[in-house]
Simulated assay, not measured.
Amino acid sequence: MSVNRNGFAVALIILLLSSGQAFSADKRILLNELYDNARLELQIDWVRASMKLDGDQYALPETVVSTVNQVVEVRYSRTFHRSSMLATLDEALSVGELLKLLDWYNSNLGQKVLHLEMAANSPSNRLRMQGYIEEKLGQQLPRTSRIRLIEELMETMDAAELGTELVASASVGAQRLLREIMPMQDGRPMRPPEILKAREKPDIRKGISDEMRNIYLYTYRSLPDNEIRAYLDFARSSAMQNFQRGQMQAMARML
């Protein structure tokens, strides 16, 4: 009798282990599908743009600028971005949340929002966005109810705080990279990233709320109020909340 019990216990353990492995494999499939459906690979363009140096803006030798930009291209590859993002999102999201996010990105409204965000966030769109903000929003703001709706979406997405973290992370990452390429003559070690980010965040935070509001007004300018409300409803879900924070955490780690 004890042999049968032992055999049953062993069989149960094998079954549980194999189920866990299948569950993990299924989650990896969902994570890869979300990465592709949400077009997260486009973030690498922003990462590279934020880390590269413009020779006209910095009084640095041309060889230093060129070397930094070459290192950025190699270090921040699409493969590195994908593996880093998936590892962090694996920690941040449950299988149930992954399924909800996939349903959202496969919906008509999810696709519409995604395409608007892709267009707005493209580095090639920067001048067009800035022109809209200066000319259109500089002359006349949308109606008050529309602004409140956009601000509610910003608050739900924690846009100002996450944006501050991202910009500070990019700034500190760029400083670290420059020091690697061109070590300081005094030889002093660089302060830990968290200390450097803590020093930069107050200045970044001062103007980022107004900047983010203008970006949101531009990005979702073609969405009617009822669709923004529908987006807002989904943005309040744990799936989207954890997805947003997971993305920012992954990018902060990469930078």
Rank of each mutant, 00 (worst) to 15 (best):
N242F: 00
I147Q: 11
D210W: 04
S209K: 14
I195M: 13
A11T: 04
R229P: 03
Q43G: 09
V72I: 07
R143M: 10
R176E: 14
Y58D: 09
L31E: 05
S122H: 14
M157K: 13
L141Y: 10
M85F: 02
Y105P: 08
K27D: 08
Y132K: 03
Q111E: 12
L40W: 02
I44Y: 03
A235T: 08
Y35D: 00
L162Y: 03
L30M: 06
R39Q: 12
S2C: 14
E41F: 10
G246T: 06
L127G: 01
L12V: 11
E151N: 13
S237I: 01
I215N: 09
I228P: 04
Q249Y: 05
M51D: 01
G131P: 01
I204K: 06
R48K: 03
A120Q: 08
T63N: 12
A174V: 02
R191D: 13
F8N: 15
Q241H: 14
S94Y: 04
S83I: 11
Q139V: 08
G138F: 05
R75F: 06
D225Y: 01
E165G: 10
E227C: 04
Q185E: 11
G246P: 04
M85E: 02
M1Q: 13
P193Q: 09
G163P: 03
L99I: 10
I147S: 06
P61N: 11
M154V: 08
L232C: 06
Q43L: 15
N4E: 14
K112S: 08
R179K: 11
R146G: 01
G131N: 12
G173I: 01
D36N: 12
Q21A: 13
M51C: 04
